[in-house]
Design a protein around this nucleic acid. Structure first.
Lengths: 107, 107
DNA sequence: CGGTATCCTCCGGGATACTG
DNA sequence: CAGTATCCCGGAGGATACCG
């Protein structure tokens, strides 16, 4: 493995950990893996997260460049979320994590 | 991708997310990737984490089966930490995450 | 429809000091 | 050496209500 320092500046793990630390980050990425979704569609798939926190997490993922937010200036409002290339590149990792978790954890 | 439900009971992502949510979890796994380490050695490699939280995280990782804690009944105390098979299986994932973070984030 | 505003609680995580 | 014991604080995340 590569040699790393363990501060947020130089360590890629520390740098990206904020994204993965969110309770809902990975699940949001997962539901967006199937394609573009509107805010309400995401919320419908993830009813356990509140609108406040869904908004917060979506903005955070957007800030990190994982997802793209497209606003259509229509009435009623229409906003679509989709994975960026960065987000799509995370999908195989997410699959690995899922497999790993399934192998070693039990219901 | 597989079909999942998104509660901690049935969704492997949700089930394992606690492990990855910890600020230091992944870095601890990383430093243990090179081999067995004593408490003080881990702490030396990760000086930014307090002993309290290092202890807490180590116990959590142990509870999830990611690391093994071996206590030697000697004076002064000697405790060694190492990765379990589950922990070792996570290393390629950790590498992927590191590469992904390096590719898309900047210092 | 896609959010905000507000309030509240819990706990992750830091700082410091102490111990078997 | 390998932790505990306390104290403290910010912020994650939930609940509810409201808005352009």
């Amino acid at each position: 493995m590569k040699e790393l320092t363990f501060d947020a500046e130089n360590c890629p793990i520390s740098r990206i950990s904020k994204v993965l630390q969110g309770k809902w980050s990975m699940v949001i990425i997962y539901v967006l893996s199937e394609g573009t979704l509107r805010f309400s569609e995401i919320h419908h798939k993830l009813p356990h997260i509140t609108e406040v926190n869904l908004t917060k997490d979506l903005r955070m993922l957007e800030a990190y460049g994982v997802i793209h937010r497209e606003v259509y200036p229509v009435v009623p409002p229409k906003v679509e979320y989709s994975l960026t290339d960065m987000g799509k590149d995370f999908l195989p990792i997410l699959n690995s994590i899922t497999d790993w978790a399934e192998k070693y954890t039990t219901k």
